[in-house]
Amino acid sequence: MTSAPFNEFDDPRIDKSDQEICDGIARPAHVAGSGNLDRLADTARDYARAAASDNTLKAYAKDWAHFARWCRMKGAEPLPPSPEMIGLYLADLASGASHSPSKSASRPLSVSTIDRRLSGLTWNYAQRGFALNRKNRHIATVLAGIKRKHARPPVQKEAILAQDILAMVATLPYDLRGLRDRTILLLGYAGGLRRSEIVSLDVHKDDTQDSGGWIEIFDKGALLTLNAKTGWREVEIGRGSKDQSCPVYALEQWLHFAKIDFGPIFVGTSRDGKCASEARLNDKHVARLIKRAVLDAGIRSDLPENDRLALFSGHSLRAGLASFAEIDEHHVQRHLGHASVEMTRRYQRRRDRFRVNMTKATGL
């Protein structure tokens, strides 16, 4: 076994990402080739690449690269799937004994990360024509034991309050960049949007191939049609009580002064903040914006800076809406696009937990 520093991407035998997987989609070998079939094969590969989001594909590629490297460091091969080896791999991830194949032990991974790794392996095996039975006792029993022994309540990001978002917006300049970032914060908060949903918006339907939705502006508000994580959904964002805090007004101002009437809504700007580009923003910009605005606005100033940065993320916008919207939670559920009220409650950092008193309801 080599003791070289571990790098999950340095082995040339490790799979060639989703490109290699999609290249395996072709016409049947026993069917004679033709221009039409070859074009259909190209189309099928394009659809295969669109089967999951870019972020999901990148995560699955990293999962497979790590597992393949781990197998080879143990003197095994990742193909075909071996439930016994996968069970040992999961145990290694949970114990932190050596899942970074080097001389030193590594920090144990969380149960949610291990579960995600297993999902990544299942997906990768399926793309290579193999079925991984997660119910096999070598996998299922080990995973059940890991969850029983190591499971912890999920670490949740801090929710941003309504007064917080106003304080964050107030720190932004009034150049183009400030108008754009103000719109991102207000629209993301009022819509309970994921950061990927924010930056994927176009002005119109079918403006770009990588569009994740579009916006229609009406007198009473804006209607967002989103191709979200759980499928297509519509999000209604009404106008606010005043222009300074109205997401729809901010959107109109940004589109007008940035002269955007086609393509991505949220694009980059020049360094001086005076010109808008045509390039769509990366969703990481939303996370960086939130963290920077939290610091500038002095939110949770009772904590050290690093702790404050760790508390807030893109999900803080969704958690803020879920926690502080003074409406029935079923409306919040629909707004966020959750399949169940239970999922919505995971986002709620503050709610009236004892509004229904089951103890008194039973007569006690």
Rank of each mutant, 00 (worst) to 15 (best):
Asp352Thr: 04
Cys246Trp: 02
Pro80Ile: 00
Ala4Pro: 03
Gln156Trp: 10
Ala131Gly: 07
Ala339Tyr: 08
Thr43Ala: 07
Gly231Thr: 00
Gln209Ile: 08
Phe266Ala: 11
Trp214Ser: 03
Ile114Leu: 08
Asp261Glu: 12
Thr56His: 04
Asp207Asn: 09
Ile160Lys: 00
Leu88Val: 01
Ala170Ser: 11
Gly188His: 00
Asp92Cys: 00
Lys62Pro: 13
Pro264Lys: 07
Cys246Phe: 10
Cys22Ala: 09
Glu234Trp: 11
Gly213Arg: 01
Phe324Asp: 01
Arg177Lys: 07
Thr225Arg: 14
Ala144Ile: 04
His256Asn: 13
Met343Gln: 15
Gly192Cys: 01
Leu166Thr: 09
Tyr189Asp: 04
Leu121Trp: 13
Asp11Phe: 04
Ile146Pro: 02
Gly213Tyr: 11
Gly298Tyr: 12
Val199Ala: 09
Leu295Trp: 05
Gly320Arg: 04
Glu236Gly: 02
Pro304Tyr: 09
Ala140Glu: 12
Asp243Lys: 10
Arg182Leu: 07
Gly363Pro: 03
His331Trp: 13
Pro264Gln: 02
Phe130Lys: 05
Ile86Asn: 03
Leu118Ala: 03
Glu8Ala: 06
Arg353Lys: 13
Ile21Gly: 09
Glu326Asn: 14
Val199Arg: 14
Phe266Val: 03
Ser102His: 15
Arg353Val: 14
Lys147Glu: 14
Gly314Tyr: 11
Lys291Pro: 02
Lys360Arg: 15
Arg334Lys: 15
Asp63Ser: 06
Lys157Pro: 07
Thr230Cys: 12
Ala41Gln: 00
Met168Val: 08
Cys22Ile: 01
Val199His: 14
Leu57His: 14
Glu342Thr: 04
Arg134Thr: 14
Asp302Pro: 11
Ala339Arg: 02
Asp92Gln: 03
Asp175Lys: 02
Ser95Gly: 10
Arg334Pro: 06
Pro264Glu: 00
Glu216Met: 02
Asp54Arg: 08
Val267Arg: 15
Asp115Gly: 09
Tyr174Arg: 15
Phe266Glu: 07
Glu234Ile: 10
Ala297Thr: 02
Leu224Ala: 01
Asn306Gly: 03
Ser245Val: 02
Val341Arg: 05
Arg117Asp: 05
Asp207Pro: 07
Ala26Pro: 12
His99Gln: 07
Asn282His: 07
Lys149Met: 13
Gly221Glu: 11
Thr43Ser: 13
Phe67Thr: 04
